[in-house]
């Protein structure tokens, strides 16, 4: 067991971008909560591992209502944020895991993880990444659709007027999220909804957003829009029937906070 991959320790964002290149053969080690066991047990066999601990990508900045979160910011740095981001962050793992796991690692995690995708999709976040063709910014939604060969640098979103979060967990020493819905009311009054646990990555619930004024109809529309698979946490059938309740709860909370 163990990995003999080349280890690279960039000392700045530009060094990290340069070291990552087009991402060929590379694995990115930030908090390590997913990658270190995979390396140790041979589930991951990269040619090179880029350790981002000293790359200067851990930050939360605010400017004129815009928040930017660096990719290696620990999850626990977000616990105090307003809903839906803060409550979502607080529901991940335990305090030790939250202190070690990073925002970028969570967003880029394989299916079954990635809780933070939900609130950041609902917030309409923009993802800034590097890779082949250089640096680019795109919606987090597009980034998650095809993030192969991309090194996430940070995410940016506009602070919402209100937010809500509803999660269905599975009792365990760790709270495993079966499904969670995040919702925000933008400063323009628009309602934006996103779900994790209904597919391999999080997704916006646009059909439900269009019916946000009618929580019942919006919940039904959300249920009709997804086709989740079975996994060890829950069946697709259960998720499909649970999603409308979570959507209604989020819309109810948004309404109450208006």
């Amino acid at each position: 067991m163990g990995s003999s991959a080349e280890v690279i320790r960039p000392g700045s964002p530009s060094e990290a971008t340069s070291a990552y290149g087009d991402g060929a053969g590379a694995a990115v080690l930030a908090g390590g909560t997913l990658l270190v066991p995979d390396l140790h047990f041979g589930r991951a066999r990269p040619e090179r591992v880029i350790m981002l601990g000293d790359a200067g990508l851990s930050y939360v900045t605010r400017s004129n209502g815009t928040v930017t979160i660096g990719a290696t910011t620990p999850v626990d740095a977000l616990v105090g944020e307003s809903s839906p981001l803060g409550p979502c962050a607080a529901s991940i793992g335990d305090n030790e895991i939250r202190a070690q796991a990073t925002v970028g690692g969570n967003l880029c995690a394989p299916a079954g993880f990635g809780d933070l995708q939900g609130p950041l999709l609902a917030l309409g976040a923009t993802a800034r990444s590097a890779g082949a063709g250089g640096e680019r910014s795109e919606s987090l939604e597009d980034f998650l659709t095809d993030r192969s060969g991309r090194l996430l640098l940070d995410v940016t979103y506009a602070e919402p007027a209100a937010g809500a979060f509803a999660s269905l967990g599975r009792p365990h020493a760790h709270h495993y999220t079966v499904m969670a819905v995040s919702g925000v009311r933008t400063v323009d009054g628009a309602t934006q909804l996103a779900v994790v646990g209904a597919g391999t990555v999080g997704s916006r619930l646009r059909s439900a957003e269009a019916l946000a004024g009618d929580a019942e109809a919006a919940g039904d529309a959300a249920g009709d829009a997804v086709n989740p698979s079975d996994d060890p946490l829950a069946s697709g059938w259960y998720r499909t029937r649970t999603l409308p309740a979570l959507v209604k709860q989020v819309l109810s909370e948004l309404e109450a906070s208006a």
Binding site: L29, G32, L39, M51
Partner: peptide
């Protein structure tokens, strides 16, 4: 700070 040593690469 309490950390899981199984998740921590010694080189980090």
């Amino acid at each position: 700070a309490p950390r899981r040593s199984c998740l921590t690469a010694v080189g980090s």
